[in-house]
Design a protein around this nucleic acid. Sequence first.
DNA 1: AGGTCAATCTCGCCT
DNA 2: AGGCGAGGTTGACCT
Lengths: 225, 225
Amino acid sequence: MRVVIARCQVDYAGRLTAHLPMATRVIMVKADGSVLVHSDGGSYKPLNWMSPPCTLREEVAEDGVTEWTVSAAKSDDTLRIRIEKVLHDTSHDLGVDPGLRKDGVEKHLQELLAEHTTTLGEGMSLVRREYMTAIGPVDLLCRDAAGAAVAVEIKRRGEIDGVEQLTRYLELMNRDPQLRPVRGVFAAQEIKPQARVLAEDRGIRCVVVNYDELRGIDDPSLRLF
Amino acid sequence: MRVVIARCQVDYAGRLTAHLPMATRVIMVKADGSVLVHSDGGSYKPLNWMSPPCTLREEVAEDGVTEWTVSAAKSDDTLRIRIEKVLHDTSHDLGVDPGLRKDGVEKHLQELLAEHTTTLGEGMSLVRREYMTAIGPVDLLCRDAAGAAVAVEIKRRGEIDGVEQLTRYLELMNRDPQLRPVRGVFAAQEIKPQARVLAEDRGIRCVVVNYDELRGIDDPSLRLF
DNA sequence: AGGTCAATCTCGCCT
DNA sequence: AGGCGAGGTTGACCT
């Protein structure tokens, strides 16, 4: 890992062209040759970058200006960095990172709801998770108290595209004489008003689920019986 | 901008929880207090981070281990960094960045197609760009050789959600006696097979457009007449 | 401020 | 390897 702080001008040409005027920025060069150009603001996205696999060529022009050319290995994307003045330049061997452990995403929510289907409606029981259809897997297939099929789409945040997804599944599943009629349930930790309106307009029930509460139900140490 | 290279352990708690075991990494602290933790690989996304607005508190524990606590201003997201050993620590004032100039994205493609509507079909003419409907603007409203309305959705890469978007527009527009019947055209530089199947199943025509070719047509220096 | 949509998206999973 | 969906998405633009 090399970190350079320098006054530089950056030009990218590839899927689009992008230009950064001369200014002071941080340039990170990773062990795999990839390059990130960061300013002192914005979020985690660099102003400009080159993803691996790529190669970095360093040249010094006649006028003494250093120019870096970073070329992508699989396309003709290039990043050109003209360096006017280097304020800082340091390199360190970081080694291979042990990597990130995550918890609490949609998959976990699906597991919890699969175990506690009554959260989705009284008398609801699970048929199977990831029920496969021709256009993709439905998160949960259930049966309600009356024995009718219910397709459940689970999102962390419920937005319009999730309702569209569920609608496509329902349209397809309702053509299957073995299954129909199939109702839809849209379950999320939070459902945007527009998504709720669209869902309810299509006869899809919206269920807001409390992740912490579900996790609490599921936590053996919190069970009383 | 402060750049620290250190052996550290990182824990994030917020929308999810994430843990990074002790290892050597680069930590960037931007002027607005935001923090990025990078390893020597991956793409531009940090292993862990805190977006602004946030505050950074630095504490030294009894055992001499430094702990940074980065807290988001608007939520209770926190990033905890335990620093075992600092290999490098430098700060520089970068000033405000003049910012990025981009060219060649979807908007430009829309401009080009608006000027060359025959690319979308013989005898096609433009009615207007960004034709407003109750659920949002249709990229292009055209009329075909026979004078019938055509709604055009433009994407750089044509995927299913683009077809859904166009379908919603068509459904709405076909309720308008002034407009109907309205046909749909899905135009993109590249159309994914699944999106094409869905579009054609719904009677939407798919048109693959060549951006460079269109730009060539539009470039005055390349015009012969 | 909030909603919508694109992105040089990145990342992970699955076929 | 390619397709597909999610993201602590981020960012830009509009209302």
